[in-house]
């Protein structure tokens, strides 16, 4: 988790209702001074103290809140991309209507209970592959009475564990996998047990050998799940090889691999992604996220300028 300190800047924006309230306060104040009516003075005092105290309440609402970016986030650079932001509330009182803004996008939570946290998903699209450098992040709230939107600016971490995948090549999925090798499965398809191995992430639950899994740690730790590996039927495997397009640039190769990956995962085929950094394999959707992360983390990266890079 990447916690970071906030800066001192506190943007404040008056809402329409707030402007109306200020105008009303001025009007009643004007009437009070001109008439000398103490009931109106009382009303003005009430409205002024409401302004002051609601400002304090808004500050208290944001006090001690921490913003974190959960590690290992991957932005696929599709229009429905979201950054996940965890807002921690270590205080002994709830935080209401907390809002996190990245650029012009925002997400809001109605309530974050005391000593708890909430995950907010902010729609945001990265502009370049590789490590994502976030623009300024605002943690704000219109609590309590929506007169004023008050925020504090959060300086994003220097190296958040937040990655953006390459865009899929516009050439189309078929063109991307054209020329890629198709490899036959090595098993003979008898279904005989080959041995036990640890359960892999994204692997189907029905493959777990529950009797041989380790539950000794109880609920305190995740169980050690085991899979009984069997011989598989003969199945084609699409090889997505980085070295297959030697004439293309680094980024173009990665874009083609992304397009190919999208194609095979949609078709539910077995695939193997070969990158200079290593080999990833899977079938259909299984292993897809890890492969996408590998594509996004494959160096070298383009030079980025102020968080907005070129493709």
């Amino acid at each position: 988790m990447l916690g970071f300190r906030n800066r001192q800047r506190r943007p404040v924006k008056l809402s329409g209702a707030g402007k109306l309230f200020v105008v009303l306060t001025l009007a009643v104040g004007f009437a009070a001074v001109n008439t000398g009516n103490n009931m109106l003075f009382l009303l003005v005092s009430m409205m002024l103290s409401l302004m002051i105290l609601s400002g304090l309440a808004a500050l208290l609402n944001l006090l001690f809140l921490q913003v974190e970016f959960p590690a290992g986030q991957l932005l696929s650079r599709s229009p429905d991309d979201c950054i996940q932001v965890r807002v921690r509330n270590p205080r002994r009182w709830s935080a209401w209507l907390v809002e996190v803004r990245v650029d012009k996008q925002f997400s809001r939570s109605s309530r974050i209970p005391a000593q708890d946290s909430g995950i907010l998903r902010i729609p945001w699209q990265a502009q370049a592959r590789g490590p994502v450098t976030l623009p300024s992040v605002l943690l704000g709230s219109a609590f309590p009475f929506a007169f004023v939107w008050r925020a504090k600016e959060i300086s994003p971490p220097n190296a958040p564990d937040l990655w953006a995948a390459p865009l899929a090549s516009e050439m189309g999925a078929e063109m991307s996998i054209q020329g890629q090798e198709q490899e036959k499965g090595s098993g003979h398809g008898t279904g005989d047990p080959l041995g036990l191995r640890p359960h892999l992430p994204n692997e189907e639950l029905h493959r777990i050998h529950w009797r041989r899994s380790d539950w000794r740690a109880g609920l305190d730790l995740p169980p050690r799940l085991t899979v009984l590996e069997r011989e598989r039927e003969q199945e084609p495997c699409i090889l997505l090889d980085y070295d297959a397009w030697s004439r293309l640039s680094h980024e173009e190769r990665l874009q083609r691999l992304r397009a190919g990956l999208e194609s095979v995962q949609r078709a539910g085929q077995r695939w193997q992604l070969r990158l200079p950094a290593g080999i990833w394999q899977g079938k259909g959707r299984r292993g897809y996220q890890l492969a996408l992360l590998a594509l996004s983390q494959q160096g070298p990266f383009l030079e980025l300028t102020a968080g907005v890079g070129k493709n």
Binding site: N38, L42, V44, L53
Partner: peptide, 22 residues
Amino acid sequence: LLPMMALLFVLLPRTPTPLWHW
């Protein structure tokens, strides 16, 4: 709010001769 309102009520300036006597 109540104590703050009381404080502001005491603090707010009064004109001895209001422009428009209510």
